[in-house]
Design a protein around this nucleic acid. Structure first.
Length: 430
RNA sequence: GGGGAGUUACCGAAGCGGUCAAACGGGUCAGACUGUAAAUCUGAUGGCUAUGCCUUCACAGGUUCGAAUCCUGUACUCCCCA
């Protein structure tokens, strides 16, 4: 299947500036760019579509450019936001940009491949502008009535009222689209970039760039958007009770990342496979059929989790995630080493206690649950045990009087406690 | 400024002198079922050295053998009139 037709089949194409974009791309290798907001020092699931898009283009022989918004990040993109944004400090921005760079390198080849990918920071060309120059050269090309008509602006106007000073929109945010628009012109000048893509909320910013390039250079540039990644219930993909799902292993462990995708609703599986993986059409359709036939097997979710974990955390990360999964949902834990347990339970809270507390009558399980933070009080711990929800090394505790002794150690110094189905904690006796 | 209503556990909301650690609903936590899902069902839900003890019903005092419940003052919230 031709490259762009494949994107369309996957549902990755929402709006385009030109219905014949596929043919245009097939003519010759094009330079293509996607912008990223440096809001944190790690990418999260919300960035995945964009990063994957760069990767897809590179693999199809086009040249991808990732633009990190060092300049625009200082302003704050109003698109899709309901309130004025907090501005980030320059130092924080630099940290964020560095972190995001490292992660993108896993997806995109910045070195050897022929159509060499680039990672640029728009502060490099936006920073030197003086305000007057900017107004004369860039601002002159933006009719205010056109700017006011953009959805990102329209949605925010009229909201300002005395009761909520955060409503409405500041001049700073209003100027955001000028900066992003100029990015496109600059990339066209310096790198021959002709195509920009972004999430559907970026449509206004993309077309602003195309308009500016036409006015300033007489150039004819292209753009398209992909749909926002949402769940069947309308909620944003990649959000959990405990916050965003990150790509950085320090923020979201490979295990947690794997589990997130493994637990995707049946209704969302088809979409995720298409939008996020590189599996070929035939395989995705086979998975769809298998899911309809036997949803309980969750072949789609497993494949999704495997593909994405491998992509983000590598083979080793995937192996670790699957190993941890086996243990978490498996039988008793015993004869492992401290090191193995430490890796498997990387994001499980732990607490150090003196080894002596295991001696004699041992440490009552009730107390252990409280120490480990699995119960807020002894009463709660007692309740959990009584109801059969407490486990030591994945083995159910069968009485409130049970105690931990040296025999309870699952490895040299660690005991694995669990409350309920999935809440774990480690106790280290050193 | 004047008049009225209120303040109960994580949230909402009963209780109006003893039988109140406080009904009920939501949430939360466990259990069963299940596909590591959804729905459903069951139990639990102030603390503890636990058939008892201790600390809670805005805050501080008071009445009483006994108060979340009555009285006085303080703080805050809401409504009506100016």
């Amino acid at each position: 299947m031709p490259f762009f037709a494949d994107l369309q089949w996957r549902g990755l194409v929402h709006q385009t500036t030109d219905p014949a974009l596929g043919a245009w791309l097939a003519e010759k290798p094009r330079t293509f760019y996607v912008g990223f907001d440096p809001t944190a020092d790690s990418l999260h699931v919300g960035h995945l579509l964009g990063v994957m898009m760069l990767r897809r283009f590179q693999r199809a022989g086009h040249r991808p450019i990732a633009v990190v918004g060092g300049a625009t990040g200082m302003i704050g993109d109003p698109s899709g936001k309901s309130a004025e944004r907090n501005l980030l400090s320059k130092e924080q921005l630099q940290l964020n940009i560095d972190g995001m760079k490292r992660q993108m390198e896993q997806f995109i080849d910045f070195d050897e491949s022929q159509p060499r990918a680039l990672l640029l920071n728009n502060f490099d060309w936006t920073g030197p502008w003086s305000y007057l120059e900017f107004l004369r050269d860039i601002g002159k090309n933006f009719p205010v009535n056109v700017m006011l008509a953009k959805d990102s602006v329209k949605g925010r106007l009229g909201r300002g009222d005395a009761g909520d000073p955060q409503a409405g929109m500041s001049y700073t945010e209003f100027s955001y689209m000028l900066l992003q628009a100029y990015d496109f012109v600059h990339l066209h000048d310096r790198h021959g970039c002709e195509l920009q893509a972004g999430g559907s909320d970026q449509w206004g910013n993309i077309t602003a760039g195309i308009d500016l390039a036409r006015r300033m250079r007489g150039a004819h540039l292209q753009g398209f958007t992909w749909p926002l990644l949402t769940k069947s219930d309308g909620a944003k993909m990649g959000k959990t009770e405990s916050g965003a799902v990150w790509l950085a292993a320090e923020r979201t462990s490979p295990y947690a990342f794997y589990q997130y995708w493994f637990n995707v609703d049946d209704a969302d599986a088809a979409n995720c496979l298409r939008l996020l993986t590189e599996l070929p059409q035939a395989e995705i359709e086979a998975l769809d059929a298998a899911r309809v036939a036997d949803a309980a097997k969750r072949e789609s979710q497993r494949r999704l989790a495997e593909e994405l974990t491998k992509l983000v955390h590598g083979e080793a990360g995937l192996t670790a995630a699957k190993q941890a999964t086996d243990i978490f949902f498996g039988a008793e834990i015993s004869s492992l080493s401290d090191k193995e347990l430490g890796q498997i339970f990387a994001d499980v809270p732990s607490k150090d206690l003196p080894a002596a507390s295991l001696q004699g009558a041992g440490l009552p399980v009730i107390d252990a649950l409280v120490e480990a933070g699995l119960a807020a009080s002894k009463g709660e711990a007692r309740r959990t045990v009584t109801q059969g929800g407490a486990y030591v090394n994945n083995r159910r505790v069968d009485g409130v009087d049970a105690a931990l002794t040296p025999a309870s150690l699952a490895s040299e110094t660690v005991v694995v406690l669990r409350s309920g189905k999935k809440k774990y904690a480690l106790l280290r006796f050193a």
